[in-house]
Simulated assay, not measured.
Amino acid sequence: MRKIVFFCSVFLLLFITTANASNAVEIKNNDELLLDLGYDQSDINNFTKTNTIVLVTSHNNEITGKELKKYAQLGYSEKEIIDFGNNEISYLNNLEGELISVDKKYMEDDTNGMVEITKEEYDQNVQEYLAIMAICNLSSQTCSDTKPTTNWIVLTTSISKISNTTPQEYIIKHDFTWTKKPFYTFKDAIGVGNHVSMSPVQNSEYLKYSADRYYSNNPINGLGPWNADGIADNWIYTANTQSGGIGFEFQLYSDWQLSTGKQYKYENHRGTMAYRVIRNNSSFTAANFSGHYIHTEQSFSGSLGVSFPAAGAFSISANITKTPAIETGITFNY
């Protein structure tokens, strides 16, 4: 079994139990945070189009400039908003807020585990892969991954201060995106480890896991052409653990084939978890938290056993081969 140890988190583990007024927190302006979240200046300009429809979601929900600004300030990227259905809109219906911190990590997942890469390297890999898949989806030839080759993943974590709440609430978001469909499609785990001064708001958590679905009528497995067949969404409203943080486990979508020969595949695997917190101790004027993802490489029929065994740490108890992603981390002022 491959064991991967990350020593870079030691400082975070020490800090996470001692945050107080003496801790310096880097403060970015709001536009800088929106850029970190993936918006560009033209997107930000759309915020001023208050009652104008600026985009339509994949579920045919119309989003105005005012609504786009609202969702962006709550930590949602434009790509996530395009995926919005009624569930997200209902969850965020009575929430307004201000984005106060974002952390994003780009990683390469190869035979040596997760390695952090630059945004430029990640973008280049995405562009090359999408160009290949655009050809593959129209081809009648075999054109898919048949071995555990290099993949790329990005984790994004954010926190926003929610307006007009007593006690003051914050919304924490943590999401992942795989560039290629994972070769191993078993159960994975995602979670956010809380600072000791943060208490989750009861029943405020959810996980949404999505992938684009395609089908082919070719009876030979792996052959196209492939036809878009909508988005598969899986919603989970109860976390597997709420002690030390919020953690979920979920089953990845696997490609499959009907007896008639019609086959389905899933691309663009992505997910978002969110929940709200309050400060439970007014002596803390600053806090931090960490975002995690664990990719498994073996089938396991029972629960993975997700937990936060120590401050800032995330693990599964199932004795199977796994690859933890490099964690994200946010420090903010209350």
Score class of each variant (00 low, 15 high):
G245L: 11
M133S: 06
N87M: 03
N60D: 07
N61M: 13
K208S: 05
D83K: 12
Y253K: 05
I27C: 00
N29V: 09
T260E: 11
L14E: 14
G244R: 00
Y129R: 09
I190N: 00
V154R: 02
K180A: 08
G244F: 09
K70S: 09
E67M: 05
A232L: 14
Q124M: 09
D83M: 15
T238I: 13
I231M: 11
I153R: 01
A239T: 10
I153E: 03
N137F: 13
E26L: 12
D229N: 15
A232C: 05
Y253R: 04
A134S: 15
M133H: 10
F6I: 10
S301E: 06
F250D: 13
G193D: 04
D43H: 14
A134Q: 14
Y76G: 06
M198L: 12
T48D: 05
G65V: 06
S315P: 11
A21E: 15
V54R: 00
Y76W: 07
Y106E: 13
D36M: 09
T48G: 08
R270D: 11
F7P: 11
Y206T: 03
F186I: 02
A274G: 09
T111R: 10
T17Y: 01
L33C: 08
M198P: 03
H269S: 13
I117P: 05
D109V: 15
L92Y: 04
S58Y: 10
G222W: 05
N221T: 14
D110Q: 04
K147M: 02
F183E: 06
D36E: 13
T50H: 12
G224H: 12
E32R: 07
N164P: 11
A24G: 11
L13G: 13
E98I: 03
S301R: 01
L35V: 12
Y184M: 01
Y170F: 15
Y266M: 07
S317C: 00
N227Q: 14
E88G: 00
E80G: 07
T157K: 10
Y206H: 02
N23M: 06
Y71D: 11
N137I: 09
I326D: 15
Y214R: 07
K161N: 10
T150I: 08
N288M: 05
D110E: 08
D229E: 14
L223S: 05
L207N: 00
I44W: 06
K181T: 06
K262G: 00
W226Y: 07
Y334D: 15
N46P: 04
I53C: 06
W152S: 14
E169I: 04
F11I: 14
D188W: 05
Y76L: 10
P167V: 08
R213V: 04
A286E: 08
K105Q: 11
S197T: 02
A325Q: 14
S307P: 13
D212A: 02
F332M: 04
K322L: 02
F250Q: 13
V25W: 06
D175K: 14
V10I: 07
F47K: 04
E96S: 06
V277I: 13
K3D: 08
T177I: 09
I132P: 03
T50L: 08
D212N: 02
E78I: 14
N280V: 07
E78L: 11
V192R: 02
